[in-house]
């Protein structure tokens, strides 16, 4: 089975490293981008199998903008997106992926701080191991 590649887009370099170690330990390949623009470039060039996207980078909703762009591109439209949020504490809105998915083009939310187990479970849900 070829190695699955996951793109991590987050401007917190420490958090990116934590996710990298966690994912590589599980056998995934990890590429990363520290900005939304760079993340979009990498997504188009490399077409990763899954994208982990931080909701809040430079701007409050930069992550959402990136997600919309990804959903627009032919090569990136079908890549599952897991969004990392701490939004509840910032805007007073608690996002509920079930309820809000019609206007939030992502597959899954993971609330920070990240529990490695939870993150891996959610990745596996969207990247089923081929038999």
């Amino acid at each position: 089975m070829p190695q699955r590649t996951i793109l991590v887009i987050d401007d917190d370099i420490d958090l990116v490293e934590i996710i990298r170690v966690t994912l590589e330990n599980e056998g995934y390949g990890v590429i990363d981008a520290q900005s939304g623009a760079r993340g979009l470039e990498l997504a188009r060039e490399m077409t990763p199998d899954l994208i982990i996207l931080d909701v809040m980078m430079g701007q409050v909703d930069e992550g959402f903008q990136v997600a919309y762009e990804l959903r627009k591109g032919d090569s990136t439209r079908d890549i599952p997106i897991i969004m990392l949020t701490a939004v509840a504490d910032q805007t007073g809105f608690a996002f509920d992926p079930g309820k809000d998915s019609d206007f939030l083009p992502v597959n899954e939310f993971v609330e920070k701080p990240i529990s490695p187990r939870q993150l891996i479970d959610k990745i596996r849900k969207h990247l089923p191991t081929e038999v």
Binding site: D14, L15, I18, V21, K112, P113
Partner: peptide, 9 residues
């Protein structure tokens, strides 16, 4: 948040 994620990882 980052520190906690690191410790948990």
């Amino acid at each position: 948040v980052t520190a906690q994620s690191a410790v948990e990882a």
